[in-house]
Design a protein around this nucleic acid. Sequence first.
DNA 1: ATGGCTGGTAGAACCAGA
Length: 264
Amino acid sequence: MSENIRIASWNINSVRARIDIVERFLREEEPDILCLQETKVADDIFPEGVFRQLGYRHIMINGQKAYHGVATISRIPIHNKTVNDWQANGEARHVAVELENGVQLNNVYIPAGGDIPDRNENPKFGQKMDFFERMIEWSGGVKDKTILTGDFNVAPLEHDVWSHKQLMKVVSHTQIEIDILARLQETSNWVDLAREFVGHEEKLFTWWSYRARDWAASDKGRRLDHMWVTPDLKAAAKSHEVHRASRGWTKPSDHAPIIMDFAF
DNA sequence: ATGGCTGGTAGAACCAGA
């Protein structure tokens, strides 16, 4: 007997400003678990009531005032919340929970890294690299039954960006970031689930800038949001979707949710 | 046309996102 579990991940760019479309997404797509990034709210004023009313009574948050912040919201039981400070500066960028089937679910918001892809000129880029180094150390100890999802802020493949040529020197698609993400992926043979369902030659994006006059028409996106699993879970992933429609809703996030259906 | 916008916080000719 298998257990069907739908897990979604969404950089929401303020959970309070976006509460109406979060609610719409939960009603329409009915994920069992929603991993949010950039909640931008301190834990004591997180809008838990909205989620509880919708049946999502299991809420594990790691937030802070104004910036960053992650939350894992579930309508099935989750346990054993843990938090890693891969930024080593107290910023709220990770929360992990355990499902009742033993699967470990890691929700992460990797730093954007600023504009210049050079740690000497831009300390934020160095912080992003250091964040990856600490994740690689952690990943080396990951055995199996583990999911790693969230906003990775790296679009590694040529067709993860609208123009590989024009973005090669733009933070999120530089070779140094692609290389360090590959090192992370190799440490536990992580499987990039979206690309198990969508061929590498097909464009696939999860983020579109707010500044485009018509984001859908210009379609200058990047695939910054990911869901990776340890190899033992690869066969449990049954279908995948980038929920592009919600990028077009009123007052959208600049990221679209990613949705994965598992049969464990 | 990769910044043209957006949110949070302060009360900005701000900061940050990516």
